[in-house]
């Protein structure tokens, strides 16, 4: 078993500010996930930072759409990366890293929903979301659209967002993975631990439910 090195993850601020990334990080850009994982297991601590770079935003959006709480989603993604760090030496490298990390995040999200159903509470996030919608400064999102069209589109997006949240949990995860994360049926089956038939059935039902919920809103 390879000893895992202590790491220091470098923030992406430099990249965001338009500065060039450090040469050490650049060399990971052309590598596949498996190769980056191998680099980390071989003792290159910066490889873990590269994995975080590749997956943090994707996982955050996946978990956020699943649990519906931004702060909680951030905590769960932190936990996902900590678990990846601790157990990366046990990862079967014949499989896809992305599927493995999504499985960890998905399981944490499912646990969160299960715990929440046992201890229901009113999330401040839901109140805050409405507050933001009412107090956000008016701005021209698309100058080609008229203000009333803009307002309607924004309103529709919110309704669509709420429609996803209304889907049953096991439908929602499959729906988000397919529609927002672009996963294949086979990947979804592996991430959710279901067989392919179940994934097909759940996805069809989720899409059907989604269409049924939004139909009156679009009329």
């Amino acid at each position: 078993m390879n000893a895992k090195p202590a790491i220091k993850i470098q923030p992406k601020k430099a990249e965001k500010a338009g500065r060039t990334a450090r040469p050490g990080r650049l060399r990971f850009k052309d590598l596949t996930d498996s190769q980056v994982v191998q680099q980390f297991l071989d003792g290159d601590a910066r490889a873990f930072g590269e994995l975080v770079d590749r997956y943090d935003k994707r996982l955050l959006n996946f978990v956020y759409r699943t649990v519906g709480d931004r702060e909680r989603a951030q905590d769960l993604i932190q936990e996902t990366f900590v678990r990846v760090y601790r157990h990366l030496h046990r990862f079967d490298q014949t499989k896809k890293f992305s599927t493995w990390i999504y499985t960890i995040a998905g399981n944490l999200a499912k646990n969160e929903l299960r715990n929440r159903s046992r201890n229901p509470l009113v999330l401040f996030q839901t109140i805050k979301k409405n507050w933001e919608a009412d107090h956000r400064p008016l701005e021209w999102e698309d100058p080609k659209l008229r203000p009333d069209d803009l307002y309607r589109k924004r309103h529709l997006k919110e309704l669509v967002e709420n429609s996803v949240a209304q889907l049953p949990e096991h439908h929602r995860i499959v729906f988000v993975l397919r529609e927002l994360q672009g996963k294949t049926y086979e990947e979804i089956a592996e991430i959710t631990g279901c067989n392919l038939g179940t994934v097909k059935s759940r996805l069809n039902r989720a899409r059907n439910n989604f269409a049924r919920i939004i139909a009156p809103l679009l009329d």
């Binding site: 790491i7 220091k8 993850i9 470098q10 923030p11 992406k12 601020k13 975080v52 943090d56 935003k57 955050l60 959006n61 956020y64 931004r70 989603a73 951030q74 993604i77 932190q78 990366f81 900590v82 589109k153 529709l156 997006k157 669509v160 967002e161 429609s163 996803v164 529609e179 927002l180 989604f210 269409a211 939004i214 679009l218």
Partner: peptide, 23 residues
């Protein structure tokens, strides 16, 4: 139509304190 609207939803960005916290 619903699918198009769904895919136009803004995506969340990782907050600036995410990396230091993970670190």
């Amino acid at each position: 139509t619903g699918r198009e609207l769904l895919q136009e939803l803004p995506t969340l960005d990782v907050p600036p304190d995410f990396r230091p916290r993970l670190d």
